[in-house]
């Protein structure tokens, strides 16, 4: 029987994740996932969709999310070279029991991305399904839902949300 996370523990975890992303410690971020970890961003017009049946924006298995992190650190990842400045704000954190040994952390976020002449704002909410692995919190599945009707304003998702 796994001990339920307190809200403070969940917040500490999400804040640490946010800081890794803001500081471009992306390989550390990828290491937060379990060996069967997944990172998902559903399409704006079907936020509740199933990635096996719906065209998502991101549907990363563990290999791909690790490669996403590695790719973004290269000079040849042109969309992020020079790197954008990124700031993740996390709020409204709630913890509930998940399936099996998983616990579900719900949160709201706003991510700011600034580069060159523009700034993009990604408001949304995230569901982290996590489990304890050797005493550490690990992400089995992160689903980040961008709460806008389209990406007309954000244009693209070249950072990690």
């Amino acid at each position: 029987m796994t001990r339920i996370l307190t809200r403070t523990e969940a917040e500490d975890f999400l804040y640490a994740e946010a800081r890794m992303l803001d500081e471009w410690r992306l390989e550390e971020w990828a290491a937060l996932f379990t060996e069967d970890g997944e990172y998902l961003v559903p399409p704006n017009d079907n936020p509740d969709g199933d990635p096996a049946k719906t065209l998502f924006l991101i549907f990363d298995d563990h290999h791909r999310l690790r490669e996403r992190a590695r790719r973004l650190l290269k000079r040849t990842a042109h969309a992020e070279f020079p790197r954008s400045r990124v700031r993740h704000m996390v709020a409204n954190v709630e913890v509930e029991a998940g399936e099996g040994d998983l616990q579900r952390i719900r949160s709201n976020f706003v991510v700011y991305r600034s580069r060159g002449e523009g700034m993009e704002i990604y408001p949304g909410h995230a569901i982290h399904d996590v489990r304890h692995v050797e005493g550490q919190i690990r992400i089995r599945r992160k689903r980040a839902v961008i709460d806008t009707d389209s990406l007309r304003l954000q244009k693209r998702i070249s950072i990690i949300i």
């Binding site: 049946k53 065209l55 998502f56 924006l57 969309a79 244009k155 998702i157």
Partner: peptide, 24 residues
């Protein structure tokens, strides 16, 4: 279908491994 959608996203779309670089 799942294989197709995964394969689509490895390259294509605003968060794929290629399209954002095209847009850039």
């Amino acid at each position: 279908r799942e294989r197709r959608l995964r394969n689509f996203l490895e390259f294509l779309g605003p968060a794929g491994f290629a399209t954002p670089d095209d847009v850039e």
